[in-house]
Every structure is written in C-alpha cells, then in structure tokens.
Amino acid sequence: MAAPDRDESLRATLVGALSSDRTGLGVTALPGAVWIALLLLAPLAFMTAVSFVTRDPLTYQIVWEPSLENYRDLFVGGTTEYSLGPVGFQATAFEQAMLLSYAIATVATVLCLVLAFPLAYAMTRLGDRAFKVTIYLVLLPFFTMYLVRAYSWRLMFGGSGVLNQALGAVGVGPVGLFEYGVPAIIVGLTHAYFPYMLITLYASLDGLDFSLVEAARDLGASRVDVVKDHIVPLALPGIIGGSLFVFVPSVGAFITPQILGLGTVQMIGILIERRAIGAASNAPAAGAASVIVVLTIVVALLVVFRYVDLDELGGA
C-alpha cells in the first residue's frame, strides 16, 4: 500500500480540477449527465426506436424493419362505442385505457387536493410539538412501502373485505361501492399519493404570512374571499406541484389497479405491462403505447411549467 503518494497526487489533481471553473463544472456535472444520458435518454430513445419495428407473430422475434403498424394499431380498428361529450367514436383498447387512466388520475388528484388542503392549512397553525407529532403521523404512511399500502386497501375492499364485513355486522350491505373496481382504485391512489400533495401544499402554505390574513379579515373580507384572494394564490405553486406529483404517477399506476381491480380495470400501466412481458409478449407494441403516454405527459408538463418554476416545486 504505497497509497499516500498516489493519494496525494490524486488529491492534487482533484484540487487543481476544482479550482478551475471549467473543470470544476465538468467534475460535478459529468457523472450525472452520463447517468441521465445512458440510463434515461438512451433507453427512451431506444424504446422509441423499438416502437417503430414489429414482432413476428410466429417466432416472437423482433423484425428490425421500420413500420408504423404499432402506432396504427393504437388508434385504428377500435370497436367499442365510446362517447366523449358530443363526440362518439369507436375506441381501441389503448384509447379506452388512456381515457380511463386520465379520468381516474384526475379524480384522485382532485380528491387529494380537496382532502389535503385543510390538513396542510391546519399544520401551518400548529405549535411545535403538535406539528412534530402530525408530520410523523403523515410521514409514516408515506415511508411505508407503497405495496403494503395498496395491499391494505385490498383487505378493506371486496365482497368479504373489512368495509363490507363491518357494514354487514350492523345489518347493512354488502355495498357495491366497496367491491373491487374503479372506486377502490381511486381510493387506493388517493391514499398512495396523498402525502405528496400534503407535503407540497404545506411547503407553500408555510410561507403564508398570517398577519396578512388577519388584516384582510379585519378589513371585512369574508372567509371565501380570504381563501380566494390570499391563500390560493400563495399556495398555487404548491397546488400545481402537488397535483403533478399525484397525477402523473396515477396515470401510469400499475400495482394499485392490479391489486384493487380484480382484473376488470385495464389502466394504461396494466396494458403496457401485459404487452411488454405478458402472454402477448409484443415489445414493439408496448413501446408504442409507452411513447404516446410519455408524449402526453410531456405536453402536460410543458403546459404546467409555463406557469410554475420548477424551483418552487422542490422539497417533495
């Protein structure tokens, strides 16, 4: 171990590198750039490439020839009557899965927002000790494995689940709402991502100057006005950021619909998983579906970031 010498020279090189702005930037930024390029951008680019080839239905091998077939299949050839307001069309399985996922994610996001707001607001008004206890009570479910939380709702819902059994014990039910299916999935997603919303909201509400609120009240503003004119604008970055953290993963959810849907609710995550490694085993078709999902998310993000700076979303 002639380490000291080598350590010293290594150290000297590092010091030299860090002393110059140019190399300092290189040393700090490069590893992350390489990681993102190799493990995020390259795979997404490759997935996009794969989505433009096909798979031989006989040998299940990929045929490396360009084709738009997978994209055509996503949108053409649907047979299920579907109406979106006044527009009626024949939806493919993919289109139905997209619409369903976006609808479920929207409801879960709104629920999270409506439910988290009072708690976040209350938390800003708590004393030190009460705050510590509350944040502990919020963080513990947050840190508890996602899978465990989804599973806990599996026990709650279902014909013989805790909710229906409890109702049965007092002579009511079983209630269809508490069966597995879309309502169970919405509750599961709301529970799963609620803490994201709460923490993001809290972080933005915490900056709220309550003397302003009091002043507004003294000046005769109604509660609704205070909330509308003072609290919401201040909390807006939190509301948008929190919604993002709930909405995007909800759209692509897999575990929750898989566990709480009993095979009857095909959200987009399930559809993609089935195509990627399920019985149909069609990588290019899975790739095409993924590309479209990514595109819709990117569009949504671009819209959001026109209004909020990413910096303000930090912390969650």
Binding site: A45, F46, T48, A49, S51, F52, V53, W64, E65, P66, L68, Y71, F75, F89, E95, M98, A288, V291, I292, L295
Partner: peptide
Amino acid sequence: SRQERPDDDGSRRISRRSY
C-alpha cells in the same frame, strides 16, 4: 386522440445496421 400521430422526424430511429 384519433388525430394524434407520432411525429416521424422527431423520433430517434436506429438504422437496421445498428439494430
């Protein structure tokens, strides 16, 4: 969504040779 079409030029394609 029926009208949505992936943008050919924007996508990164890999040539058959590199495949």
